[in-house]
Each structure stands twice: as structure tokens, then as C-alpha cells.
């Protein structure tokens, strides 16, 4: 499988990374080089093999459903480029 210029633009949008027109060709080449490299996985017989979900044999731990942290909104927004009254500020989303 390989990607074309339109697919590069589509992936860029899905990834929320603006790809300028003069970058498309380079990404197309690089992504296809990587996809060409991983293509060799198709020669592996994986019939009956379970996909790995956990690299160590462990059951995901659970804990009681209770509040254990929080209550400091000013710390949460402390690194925000733009905040007001402990809210993150973004451009208007709903008209």
C-alpha cells in the first residue's frame, strides 16, 4: 500500500498538522519509504495468533471509584498559553 498527495493532505488534516503545498511531495516520499519498509510484515503467517494487548502478563488494576486528586484548577491552567478564571481560552467553537 502507498499514499498519494491527496492522502498526505488527508492524513495531515486527521493528525491536525497543517501540511503546506510545498511539503506534500517530501512527505509522500518519506511516508511511502516507511510503508514500503513495514510491508514485509505481510509475509508473516499470523493465522491463529492473538494480537498483543499487554506485554507483561498482568490484569489491569482497578481501584475504588472515588476522588483521589484534584481541587486545584489554578495549577491545571498554570501552563496554559491563554486562560481566564481558571478556564482554558479557545476561539469561539459554537456560533
Amino acid at each position: 500500500m502507498s499514499v498519494d498527495a491527496d492522502t498526505v493532505r488527508r492524513i495531515g488534516h486527521l493528525a491536525r498538522i497543517r501540511i503546506s503545498d510545498d511539503e506534500v511531495a517530501a512527505y509522500e516520499g518519506e511516508l511511502n519509504a516507511i510503508l514500503g519498509f513495514v510491508e514485509q510484515l505481510s509475509e508473516v503467517d499470523v493465522s491463529g495468533v492473538e494480537p498483543m494487548t499487554s506485554v507483561t502478563p498482568m490484569v489491569l488494576r482497578r481501584r475504588a471509584d472515588g476522588v483521589t486528586d484534584g481541587g486545584y484548577p489554578e495549577k491545571v491552567v498554570a501552563n496554559a498559553p491563554l486562560s481566564e478564571d481558571n478556564f482554558f481560552m479557545v476561539p469561539k467553537v459554537v456560533e
Binding site: 486527521l14 493528525a15 511516508l31 516507511i34 510484515l41 505481510s42 499470523v46 494480537p51 494487548t53
Partner: peptide, 30 residues
């Protein structure tokens, strides 16, 4: 970083997930 985020986005996108991601996780089991 952009290149890898884009590869990741592509292999997880609709229609390619089984062919790439699930297959890779099976190979990982092997």
C-alpha cells in the same frame, strides 16, 4: 515527530487498522 504522527494516524485510520496495527500486534506476540 510530524512524520511519525502521520504514519501513526494513517495506520490507525479507517480501513487500515487491521492490515497494519492489528497485524503488527500479532507479529509482536510472535
Amino acid at each position: 515527530v510530524k512524520r511519525r504522527v502521520m504514519i501513526g494516524t494513517y495506520v490507525l485510520s479507517a480501513g487500515y487498522y487491521d492490515a497494519y496495527y492489528v497485524r503488527a500486534q500479532k507479529v509482536r506476540t510472535l
